[in-house]
Design a protein around this nucleic acid. Structure first.
Lengths: 189, 189
DNA sequence: GGGTACATGTAATCAGTTACATGATTTA
DNA sequence: TAAATCATGTAACTGATTACATGTACCC
């Protein structure tokens, strides 16, 4: 009988474990709300996942489920000691270079040679606007978190978000101002 | 009979279409090589996808497949006129706010309250190192692309990558120097 | 008590990933 | 020509996403 190598859970599951560990027992719906206002900005999960994952995690003994007996009969999940151990193990684990920007705009820019210059500028402006809107959202959340000591870690990740959006805005403004071109002679006569 | 809404292809398919449009006919293996040296740094796709997707795309008339009759009998794909139209349509399409950083380190930082401060510093250092290594890789590629006018768009996306890595390094150094803490009184007596 | 928004759950589908299996080319 | 490496394809599985179906609470 082969010993099956211990594999990591999907990322969505760690988010669920982490939220239940830090925010206490919650329903899938509440988890979605929490994610939408925080983590979801840089790593989103579809709602259904938050119903499917906890079931699996409960079977694995990492969560405990309690179902309301009246009204909406919702499932309230809380993390078990084993679940806390697993999320701590994951947090301590040395990272294996997992960063993916997954920026559709950047992907499109990579294929910019298929567009004419005017459309590249158009793309750059759309992207700049998109990042400006997101920056505005972040600044609002930032104002709310700024003086809540309990939210120090949320605040730190948000700072990263703000820096990223500012950088993106500057980048796309650059692109709009001086769009790359694969023809040798774009500006000169 | 309901008219089915025209849905976007998965992102992997647009990458395949884009690469075939810009680099000419290729095998799945060649596509993987192309991706590994460019797009893969910010949006990676597993090798198998590059065998599965083209089959679907061929059925949809967006690609044409030609199979070698000798040797490895590999499948060489080339983009059709219809395929080119589709990738251009996608490029022109107004973006719908699709950016996800998917940074595991940032996710872990969000749950930093579950760690003790020393482990937060540890995490920050690991992340800083990771981004430093990636920056070094980018700088090397940058040197290669710098004076190749045909690669102007690849160069532009790379500039973004470099900016992002520099920002990340600064961010994680900050975190390592002054790790957030949820206890009210970390430094004072 | 009827309408509306909020909330919940599940089934079906599709994409993403791992694992397996094999073949071709190169080089010693 | 044997061994090593490079290359290719597919099947099985797991996770992610969409679509469907329904129920509860609230407000007027």
């Amino acid at each position: 009988m082969t010993m099956r190598e211990q594999r990591d859970l999907p990322t969505s599951s760690y988010v669920i474990l982490g939220l239940l560990a830090t925010c206490g027992p919650s329903t899938p719906y509440e988890l979605k709300k929490l994610i939408d206002g925080s983590i979801g900005y840089f790593w989103d999960f579809p709602r259904a996942q938050l119903y499917v994952d906890p079931e699996r995690l409960t079977q694995q003994g990492l969560l405990a489920e309690e179902r309301e007996t009246t009204g909406r009969r919702r499932r309230v999940y809380r993390i078990t000691a084993q679940g806390e151990a697993e999320v701590r193990r994951w947090l301590d684990e040395a990272a294996v270079a997992e960063v993916e920007m997954r920026d559709t705009g950047l992907l499109k820019l990579y294929f910019g040679s298929l567009l004419n210059p005017a459309d590249v500028v158009e793309l750059a402006r759309r992207e700049r606007d998109l990042h400006q809107r997101r920056l505005a959202t972040y600044e609002m959340i930032r104002a709310e978190l700024e003086h809540e000591p309990a939210q120090a870690f949320a605040f730190a990740t948000l700072r990263m978000g703000v820096a990223y959006e500012r950088m993106s805005i500057a980048f796309w403004e650059d692109v709009a101002k001086a769009p790359p071109t694969t023809t040798l002679d774009a500006a000169g006569s």
